[in-house]
Computed example of a mutant assay.
Amino acid sequence: MEQAAALAAFDAQLRNVVRPTLDGGRFERAGSVIRCLSADQDGWSGVEWSDLDETTADDVIAEQIGYFRAHDRDFEWKYYAYDRPDDLPERLLKAGLIPGEEEALMVADVADVPEIPAPEGIRLVTVSDEDGLRQVKAVHDKVFGGDHGPMIDSMRERIPSGAVAPVLALAGDEAVCAARVDFHVGTDFASLWGGGTLPEWRGKGIYRALVSLRTRLAAERGYRYLRTDALPTSRPILEKLGFVRLTTTVPYTLPG
């Protein structure tokens, strides 16, 4: 995979573009930013892309804070390490936004990801019914904490169009790992999210097998690239599967 070309494609197709959202929100270009206002109070709202410099950054940050506050939305400024100006993180902090954990933007060419079978005793399935969604929610609630009902509602709405494919790893009838792949229509990219495995089932190769399954689903639909935002725990696994770290990203959020 040619890394510079992959990053340029990511920026042009998924960041610097007004596109449909995955949960019913609305992206729009507002001067030097592209932002999303979710239709749902619990959905994702935030700034996806910006083109700022030292003379404009502070005013634009203040404008976005005012915009989202006026719409009664918490929001996230999705900062990538190549965004400008160089001191944008410091400016976001000064404006009151709080940084989250740094993640790696990791991308793989679909053709480079090996096919990995499920471990013995594990069955991998694609979810399309209410029972499967219930199991996906149960795994996410246990692994990540909180209530993932809004995420499940979004998946339920998008499954019929083929925009998302939730997947499960089952040991007998027990769901032990859950994830999803989002298909960005009109782009070269499919995105991998989730991948939560119950603690007692970790280290058995289940997560790797679900990455491989989602890769096959993306390949069947003609996508070239897979992308994900990876925490340190999953980066070594993804690198062994052909993923390359292109840059880093940090979510800056403004508390309500």
Score class of each variant (00 low, 15 high):
residue 230 A to Q: 02
residue 206 I to C: 01
residue 249 T to W: 05
residue 169 A to K: 00
residue 69 R to I: 10
residue 135 Q to R: 08
residue 209 A to K: 04
residue 250 V to M: 09
residue 169 A to N: 03
residue 17 V to F: 11
residue 58 D to Y: 08
residue 200 E to K: 07
residue 177 C to Y: 00
residue 35 R to T: 02
residue 7 L to T: 01
residue 67 Y to D: 03
residue 256 G to T: 09
residue 184 H to L: 14
residue 84 R to I: 02
residue 146 G to Y: 13
residue 50 S to F: 06
residue 217 L to T: 00
residue 164 V to I: 15
residue 49 W to S: 04
residue 16 N to Q: 13
residue 134 R to C: 13
residue 69 R to W: 05
residue 15 R to D: 08
residue 86 D to V: 07
residue 109 D to H: 03
residue 159 I to E: 09
residue 114 P to K: 07
residue 102 E to A: 12
residue 196 G to N: 08
residue 191 S to M: 08
residue 250 V to K: 08
residue 236 P to G: 14
residue 71 H to A: 09
residue 132 G to M: 01
residue 131 D to V: 10
residue 129 D to W: 06
residue 218 A to H: 02
residue 185 V to F: 12
residue 141 D to I: 03
residue 149 G to F: 11
residue 35 R to S: 02
residue 121 G to C: 12
residue 63 E to Y: 06
residue 4 A to T: 02
residue 255 P to Q: 09
residue 13 Q to D: 15
residue 247 T to S: 05
residue 114 P to H: 10
residue 126 T to Y: 03
residue 152 I to A: 07
residue 6 A to P: 01
residue 149 G to A: 11
residue 136 V to Y: 00
residue 249 T to L: 07
residue 95 A to I: 02
residue 131 D to T: 08
residue 69 R to F: 05
residue 48 E to W: 08
residue 222 G to Y: 15
residue 44 W to L: 07
residue 137 K to Q: 09
residue 70 A to I: 04
residue 62 A to N: 06
residue 30 A to G: 03
residue 10 F to C: 00
residue 68 F to C: 01
residue 231 L to S: 15
residue 237 I to G: 05
residue 79 Y to A: 03
